[in-house]
């Protein structure tokens, strides 16, 4: 059986996935990236291999993605997270579709055609608003763990809006609202709504919508709000947090064109074609 692997070296977490030739997930892992991305990648890969019941020698190809994709020295090729989240989502949901990926430090909107080919992408500005960090900041202000935010928001009964775009100002506004007697559950829901609005303003949503990334994996409220605002059922595929690593494993399986720096060297399976060439 041929097996493939993907490693997503994110700014907060490093994820690894091992798949078989049909794209069936055999093992996954999520570890903290920390300061040494190379070590985190090795740890995540080793854990995913162990969970898949195999060794590195059993893997036909491993590709990297994510912010630290160039730090994954053992990878045979790399693709951006823009490609891998789209590739992973298109494996589960037929296009045309729009993929929303909300990570700890960035948010992406990726538009794909009926064949899963990328039409466009948008990334958030150099700003924490619209990313998972926004929820971390809000949870900190409310004095709870980020993971508890979703449970808290589920108890919300009154709808209102945070008026600030800025993460820091939203935190300050939250303190004012707490002093004014607002319930924490309503504040938690307002934070999700603020994040949702920031994300849906990034691009046009004109197809089926798939959400990936750590935020939707742990915050179902976010998915519900996106569905409500976009008037479509937002699909969350299996392993949403590991979707980038899954997409990288699919890229390894498919022998995608590796365009990254070093795309001409032995690390990549195929390099960017010249004008007129048809790979």
């Amino acid at each position: 059986m041929r097996r493939y692997a993907g490693v997503d070296s994110g700014s907060w977490n490093t994820k690894a996935v091992v798949i078989d030739h049909d794209g069936l997930v055999l093992g996954t892992s999520v570890v903290r990236s920390g300061a040494d991305l190379a070590v985190a990648a090795e740890r995540a890969y080793a854990e995913a291999l162990a969970r898949a019941g195999c060794e590195a020698a059993d893997i036909s190809a491993v590709w990297s993605t994510g912010f630290g994709r160039d730090a994954v020295a053992f990878a045979d090729g790399s693709r951006t997270e823009l490609d891998c989240h789209g590739r992973g989502a298109a494996f589960h949901v037929k296009g045309p579709l729009v993929v929303i990926d909300i990570g700890g430090q960035d948010a992406k909107v990726i538009r794909l055609d009926a064949n899963g080919h990328r039409l466009s992408h948008r990334m958030n500005r150099k700003c924490a608003a619209g990313t998972g960090s926004f929820l971390d900041e809000i949870a900190l202000r409310l004095g709870i763990e980020t993971a508890a935010l979703d449970v808290l928001a589920a108890q919300s009964t009154e709808e209102f809006e945070l008026s600030s775009f800025c993460t820091v100002f939203a935190g300050t506004e939250l303190l004012t609202l707490i002093r004014a007697g607002r319930r924490p559950s309503d504040l938690a829901m307002a934070a999700y709504r603020s994040l949702m609005k920031r994300v849906i303003a990034m691009d046009v949503f004109d197809g089926r919508v798939v959400a990936t990334g750590g935020v939707v994996a742990y915050h179902p409220t976010m998915v519900a709000l996106l569905s409500e605002a976009l008037h479509v059922e937002v699909t969350v595929p299996p392993h949403p947090q590991e979707m980038g690593a899954f997409g990288a494993a699919l890229a390894a399986r498919d022998g995608a064109v590796s365009v990254g720096p070093g795309g001409d060297d032995a690390r990549s399976s195929r390099s960017l074609p010249l004008a007129g060439e048809t790979p």
Binding site: F67, R79, T80, E81, L82, D83, N115, H117, R118, S120, H121, M123, A256, V257, V259, G260, L272, P273, E277, T278, P279
Partner: peptide, 20 residues
């Protein structure tokens, strides 16, 4: 860097698909 690399991937994939 990610934006540019992602865009190049998109263009390269488009060219490859057109070739196929």
């Amino acid at each position: 860097k990610t934006n540019i690399e992602g865009f190049v991937e998109q263009l390269a994939d488009g060219r490859a698909a057109a070739g196929r």
